[in-house]
Nucleic acid binder design. Sequence first.
DNA 1: CTGAAAGCGCTTACAG
DNA 2: CTGAAAGCGCTTACAG
Lengths: 338, 338
Amino acid sequence: VKTITIRDIAKRAGVVPSTVSVVLNGKAKEMRISDRLANQIRVIAEEMGYYPNQTAVSLRTGKTKMLGLIIEDISNIFFASLAKIIEDEADSIGYKVVYCSTENNDDKGCELIKMLSLRQIDGLLITPTNGMTLEISKLLEKKKPVVLMDRYFPYLNAPCVLSDNFTGIKDGVEHLLHKGHNKIAFVTVDLDQIQMHERERAYFETLQSHNIETKNNWTLKLPYKCKPAEAIHKITSFISSISGLQAIIFATNYLGIYGLDSIRQLGISIPSDLAVICFDDHDIFRLHTPGITIIEQPIKEIAMNSIQLLMKQFENKELAVNELQVFKKPKLVIRAST
Amino acid sequence: VKTITIRDIAKRAGVVPSTVSVVLNGKAKEMRISDRLANQIRVIAEEMGYYPNQTAVSLRTGKTKMLGLIIEDISNIFFASLAKIIEDEADSIGYKVVYCSTENNDDKGCELIKMLSLRQIDGLLITPTNGMTLEISKLLEKKKPVVLMDRYFPYLNAPCVLSDNFTGIKDGVEHLLHKGHNKIAFVTVDLDQIQMHERERAYFETLQSHNIETKNNWTLKLPYKCKPAEAIHKITSFISSISGLQAIIFATNYLGIYGLDSIRQLGISIPSDLAVICFDDHDIFRLHTPGITIIEQPIKEIAMNSIQLLMKQFENKELAVNELQVFKKPKLVIRAST
DNA sequence: CTGAAAGCGCTTACAG
DNA sequence: CTGAAAGCGCTTACAG
């Protein structure tokens, strides 16, 4: 099956290919081509079922109308949700998106940036790993449109859109304090990522600013990629090790799931009025967690804002300083308990 | 920042661009280019940080090394999991993947096929909606490599890789019968998709083949995109409407989640020994469902097999008849109860 | 108003 | 062994 090109149409219309190109790109007026001829060309193109070869267009124009989405893991519900909103937004401006998972592996992440660059991707949305700093700074030098999401590098002048992790946890802590819970534990994950640091910092600083006692052994740091059984065990013994515990904050929902489930599953006796707050990634989990308070990630806001920042770069607009680091505040959602 | 092309290297090496191309494509031997020169060219390319422009390669060769993944919704954990495995598999053979969500909308699905085609995508992996039949048959005509996943059209000769939904439910039913449960309800979703029909058929036929009574009002069909609250309500009253109910099968995990959660959440009194089986999509859910039996979707097998079938088509191999419709059997996973 | 030409960066058949 | 040329399908600056 031969594909229809601009030449085929030109031949049929009795004009030269460039005329067809001009018409089909809506520049007929500009080039003062008669309406009659322009229309005729459009009709023929339609009849012949012509679609421009995007590869050829890309080679010529240098634009692929494709976005690269580099995330930790597409099968993770947080990133999958992000991916959906990004797909929708990209679609609305005529872009398709190529996704790639870093699996939090620096080398893989850097490789992905290279791969996508040589495919002439127009812009990159990245949830970076720490080891990607250099590669990202190269992109910035090349003026390649790029937006970091969810994580950022303090010393890199890259546009980024983030959860306001600090305020999220701060709000959570203050919610608990307001309810009269002063003895609050904190469960997090041992990941050297800025967002995890921010959450931990918020936990300590908020309590301190309210003159509430904090103790290091009220904090549990689970290894990244901790096996569920191990996580459950550690969380359980952690909880029972603190007498008079009134509340617990899970700094990631991943742990939250294991944690809450573990509690139910093992039937551990914890105070039935233990207040639980969990940093959350997605809607779906809320169904499973009656009685807990969710710090809801502003996924939609992050995704939409990221695309906007990318578009500004496409238009060669300078980003204002206050657009370089955008913080989207999580929302506290209180689930009715059973 | 100027990008390095084959010409720059040629100039530096004192040869003509085609020589560089030949060497860099590993055809130096073939073209009887001296090892010394070949090496020199490779070194220069390396030094200059050369990467071939994929767009140009694509235009010339007609291959983009990109796959299109058309699914219902990337934010759905089933498809996200599929997407991850497909990403990995594609990566291992040097392909990137562009994803698009149909949202079960026929028009959108057809549009996506067109969009991806004009981007010269090398092959398509599709979980089709019913209305995509025509567009897919066009692809087949054009000999465009395509594999349908998870769903298929009985009258379309397209390669497809599917869950063996019938056997999955059949195994589930027989598992229940074996345990001595004869009064089994079935909760499904009102979607005109072949896999849902197969699951329902398996429920009825398996019971009938064992001479077990079935009644139509032991089946609940929820509307697609039923709101959680509504689903919970319907499932709850459905369960309590059947006296002496011994077991229940959820034909999708989506419902399963709502269903099980609803039971807990509303504290409805159901027989504590009610056996529950749920068609499942992904690992993560199993954590939430102690005591139920999962019919586990063979996601990994489907994804890997699909890529293989696509590759065969890339190599212009004819597919054997038994490769045209591949059924991957779900696995029964019995979760320890609390 | 319209046409001829150059060129995006590459690969490959062809000629020496 | 190596080089010159054509061409993938398009867009755009240029010339009439």
